[in-house]
Each structure stands twice: as structure tokens, then as C-alpha cells.
Design a protein around this nucleic acid. Structure first.
Lengths: 211, 211
DNA sequence: TGTACATCAGTGAACGCGCGTTCACTGATGTAC
DNA sequence: TGTACATCAGTGAACGCGCGTTCACTGATGTAC
């Protein structure tokens, strides 16, 4: 039966939100369209009124998750913007590590993305760019440079690696899982803090992100 | 038909080797037992004469891949053991990034591991420990300490994150994929080189990366 | 050394099940008059 | 404002297919005598 435009838009949003959560929890390939539809309060057929394929939904779901993560990451706390150290604390917390559904969508899927549709990889790349831009601006917002970008990129993949590795060993060796978080938290500042050898690195040109 | 003990052992090894390659290429859940058996020159039924389940084979396959990676990582080159910088160069090379089947098994599966059987997570943890031990010993083999381990752990997850993130964006944004490798290569030394605040004699010898 | 036979790695059909996608149909919505 | 009807989000059965696992069977190996 037809449904109001408003209701249809709500259903579409619910599908994306539900897919985002389930795909993070069980992997993109680990959850089926039937389950996503059911969890969103619909049948699986309804999904194809909104998206041409599961791949397309996966791309939208990843984009949704990344946008939400970005908003949370950069949201003001106690009336001011968070500092770099606070961002890292939040990202590496044990709560975020334990709650895959609420945690970083990149960390939840990083090693699956390359095997998905290119559209999914594009969303991942856009999310990584956003994260890098936030970090680079916190490193030195007045003098953004190739050096800041380089460090921000390394910090981003370090955090993604830390969370996904911590989750990987969580069931088998919980102490190691926690140790990863603490080690990275304790060490990652060296990436930001190390003084530059020569004023600017010459090796790596900074590509202009297409946003 | 029965087969000689030697042949059976060969078949078993072939199954593990094949599973290791295919699971890295297409994900642990992305490849089926039928395909693994066929690629190893057998039928899928034969697999169950050697392993109680696909999960058990996945654990063995991961262990095999990690052991092979460890051997390659630490193998002497040109008659001497590789330095830390050389290890990193090898790990972050574009060839290893492009050839999933030959690259690091941890980077290939990191975000899938947490959803697998605990046995698989155990193998991953063991592989990570090995990698950390290698790095820690290269940082300062004479004075292994908690500080070295901490840095080695951060370096390990940074490298895993770098390769898996680079692969994630490879199809969609190859330039970004390469930039990740270069940025991490250029920045990761700061983790090793940063003088320690308190708990070590300040002059931790900075490994000289081959450049 | 030769013969009889137990062993068991490997075969291939079959199991129930879930996958992504398609499609004829439903019926409330929203529009044209 | 009331009526007629086109639209289209959502339904649910059906599609072919591949999944992991089981199992009765095969037949060369390897052993006991």
C-alpha cells in the first residue's frame, strides 16, 4: 500500500540507519537485506523501492555512519571545541571499542571495503579525508601544510588500526585489546609533537581533496 | 579412495595454503568451502577429513599466513638481518599493498576477525605479538622494556591500519591510497625516535631508516 | 614374499537454509477536475 | 468541497544460486599373518 511522502522518507532513513548499525556489527557481507528490512520494520522488497541494490544501500549506510561519527567527533563539549587530545581520548575509549554499533564506521569495516563496490570505497575515502582535515586543523589550523596533512593521515590510520586490531583480539585476549588502546593513546602524541626536521617536507605533495 | 599418508599430508597443506590465499583475497566469509576444496584440487568433502569445520580451517589458514609473513619479515637479506627501517619499507611497499594474497594476513582481515570464532582471534593475537616482539627488539634489543613494547605495539597497529586503509580506498582513489603509504612511511619514525619522558635513559637509539 | 583385509582420505549427492533480486499485486495517498 | 483515478511505497511469493555440513560409498594404502 502506498504511504505518505513523509512516511516514505522516514522509512528510507530508518533503512539507512538500520543498515549502518547492522553492517558495523556483523560486517557488510555478514548481514542480509531481509534482516535489514525486518529490523527497519519493513519487508525486504521495500528496500528496492529506495535503493537499486544492496551495494547502493551499503554505500549510503557507510556515508550515514561516517557523517554521524564526524558530527560527534567535532561537536563542542562544555561550550568549546574539543582539543586534539580529547578527540583521541574519545576515539580510543573502551566504550567505543566495545560498542561497534556506536563506534567508528571506518574501523568497523576497513578490511572489507576494498572488496566492495567502488561506491563504498568512495564513501570511505571521503570519511577519511574529513577525519584527516579535522586532525590537521587541530595540529595547526593557522598553517595547514603538507606536513600537517601527512601527520594527520598517519594519526587517522593509526586510530583506525588500533580500534580494529583491539576488536580483533577482544574475545581471545581482552588484556591485549586494552593494551593496544593504552599504548596508542600513550604514543600517538609523538606523531603530532615531533619537531620538523627541515621546515617543510618536500617529498609528499598534498593532493587537494575533492569534497 | 584412500591415498598415501604422504599424499594426505600434502593435500592438507595445500588446503591450508589455498584457504590462506583465498581468504585474504576475498575475505574469510567471502570464500566458500567448495571453492577452497576445488582450488586445492579436491572436492569440498575432503576438507572435512582434515578439519572439523570451516572455522577451524580459517584459524589454521590465518596461522599459516602469519607464520609465513613473520618468516619473510625477519629473513636475512644480503647476509644480514634487516633493520627496522627496512622492515617498514618492505611492509608499506605498493607491491605488498596491491598483492593481497602475498601481503600481511592481519591487514587483510583485521576488521573481520572480531566476528569470527575465538580460535581465529587467538591466532591473530599471536601474530600481533610476534610482530610487536620483532619491532621491540629492533628498537632496543639490549634494553627491552615496557616503553619499547608500547611503541612497537603502536607501530604494528599503525602499519596494519595503513595497509588496510590504503586497500580500502585503492579502487576509488588510488592517489590517496599511495599517499597513505608515503605519509605513514615518512611519519612513523617519530614513534620510534621520540626521546622518552621519564622511564628510560633519554638516548633511545633512533633506528636509521634506509631512505 | 604373497595374500587377506581393515583403514580411512577422498567422492559426490543430498540436507536445510539464507542469499540478492524480481515481480504481480495491493491500497492509501495525493492530484485533477 | 466532493468525486474519480493515477501514482507508487510496500507486500510477499518466487527465482536461481551458493552456503556449510553430513553421509553412504569407493578403493588404494598399509598392515597382519
Amino acid at each position: 500500500m502506498k504511504v505518505s511522502k513523509e512516511q516514505a522518507a522516514q522509512n528510507r532513513a530508518k533503512l539507512i540507519e538500520t543498515a549502518s548499525r547492522l553492517m558495523r556489527e556483523r560486517g557488510i557481507d555478514g548481514v542480509g537485506v531481509a534482516e535489514i528490512g525486518k529490523a527497519a520494520g519493513l519487508t525486504h522488497g521495500a528496500l528496492y523501492a529506495h535503493f537499486p541494490s544492496k551495494d547502493a544501500l551499503a554505500a549510503e549506510a557507510l556515508a550515514f555512519g561516517l557523517e554521524r561519527g564526524h558530527r560527534r567527533l567535532t561537536a563542542p563539549r562544555n561550550g568549546r571545541l574539543p582539543e586534539l587530545g580529547e578527540l583521541i581520548d574519545g576515539y580510543l575509549s573502551e566504550e567505543k571499542r566495545n560498542d561497534v554499533a556506536e563506534g567508528c564506521a571506518m574501523a568497523a569495516s576497513v578490511s572489507e571495503i576494498g572488496r566492495q563496490d567502488t561506491a563504498v570505497g568512495e564513501r570511505f575515502a571521503a570519511g577519511l579525508e574529513q577525519m584527516v582535515n579535522v586532525f590537521a586543523s587541530k595540529l595547526d589550523w593557522q598553517h595547514p601544510s603538507a606536513a600537517q596533512r601527512e601527520r594527520a593521515l598517519t594519526m587517522a590510520v593509526t586510530l583506525i588500526g588500533a580500534i580494529s586490531a583491539s576488536r580483533a583480539v577482544m574475545k581471545a585476549q581482552p588484556e591485549l585489546a586494552d593494551e593496544i588502546l593504552h599504548a596508542v593513546r600513550h604514543t600517538i602524541d609523538t606523531i603530532a609533537a615531533q619537531p620538523l626536521a627541515s621546515d617543510e617536507p618536500t617529498a609528499v605533495p598534498a593532493p587537494t581533496p575533492s569534497a
